[in-house]
Structures are given as structure tokens and as C-alpha cells.
């Protein structure tokens, strides 16, 4: 069983193909992703480069986005509490800055929802599927 995988970081670990146990360099991330009886080896998966990529992608999207919308929302809340002068300024007819600011929160929220859904579908789901495949392949190899 050989598997195509992007070359892991050197040094290449001494991976024994038929040996189901963890290799001598667990941190190298190139040991079988399943134990001898086919159950997933979580530490190995966690150390694998594919998983690291998934985690990085997720965190790079989710954490900045959370910070962004929280700041944007808190700006709105702080202005509502302390920026009365600004918020009551009329923009058109009876509609003032405060009302528009609130409605803008509606728009940004739904935009982030849609953006994340598309991002997850395009960038996260395929990567998750890939990890599932690798684990499945190793489970089959382990049984042989």
C-alpha cells in the first residue's frame, strides 16, 4: 500500500508499512492514522499535515471574522449608549443614523453567514473529506 501524499516535512520518518503502531517520530506526522484494529488513531490524525491544514484554514477564517463582527457590533452598541448626538442625526425623512446603523448590522450578519457557508463548502468540506479518506485507507491497510 503506497499512498500519494504531499511530502511531509523532512526528515522522512521511518514508517513501517505493516506495523500498525505509531512510528518513532510521532511529531513527523507520517504514521498510520489508524490503530491495528482499524480504529482511528486521534493523536496521529492530529499530528498529520492534512489535519493541520484544515485547522489552520478554519481558524484563519473563524477567529478574525468573529473579532470583526464583535467589534462592529460593539461599536454599534457603544454608539447607541454614548453617541446619541451622532445616532440621532437625520439621514432621510425620519430615518436617522442609529436606525441605519442597526439595519447595517442586519446586512453584515447575513453577509457573513452566506460567506462562511460558501467558504466552508469550498475550503473546509473537501479538506475534511480528504482526511476521512486517508483514515479509511489506513484502516483498510491496517486490516490487510
Amino acid at each position: 500500500m503506497t499512498r500519494d501524499r504531499q511530502p511531509p516535512a523532512p526528515p522522512p520518518s521511518a514508517r513501517a508499512v505493516d506495523d500498525g503502531t505509531a512510528g518513532p517520530f510521532p511529531e513527523a506526522g507520517d504514521r498510520p492514522l489508524c490503530g491495528p484494529s482499524g480504529e482511528p488513531d486521534f493523536a496521529a490524525i492530529q499530528a498529520s499535515p492534512e489535519f493541520a491544514r484544515l485547522r489552520r484554514r478554519l481558524r484563519l477564517f473563524v477567529f478574525p471574522m468573529t473579532a470583526l463582527f464583535l467589534c462592529w457590533y460593539l461599536t454599534f452598541a457603544l454608539f447607541s449608549a454614548y453617541g446619541n448626538e451622532f445616532m440621532r442625526r437625520k439621514v432621510t425623512g425620519e430615518i436617522n443614523v442609529g436606525t441605519l446603523f442597526g439595519l447595517a448590522q442586519f446586512l453584515t450578519t447575513i453577509t457573513i453567514v452566506v460567506t462562511y457557508a460558501r467558504f466552508a463548502k469550498k475550503r473546509l468540506d473537501p479538506q475534511t473529506d480528504r482526511i476521512h479518506e486517508l483514515v479509511r485507507a489506513d484502516a483498510e491497510a491496517g486490516r490487510k
Binding site: V62, M65, Y73, G102, Q105, T109
Partner: peptide
């Protein structure tokens, strides 16, 4: 207006459920 803040907060809050 202050009542309106409730609805804004309760909508934005779903982003936490979605993202995190």
C-alpha cells in the same frame, strides 16, 4: 430604539453559533 437593540443583538448572536 432601545428595544430595537434587542433584535440586532439576537440576530448577530447567531454568528457565534455558526462560526465557533
Amino acid at each position: 430604539y432601545d428595544g430595537f437593540l434587542y433584535s440586532v443583538g439576537w440576530l448577530v448572536a447567531w454568528l457565534i453559533a455558526l462560526l465557533l
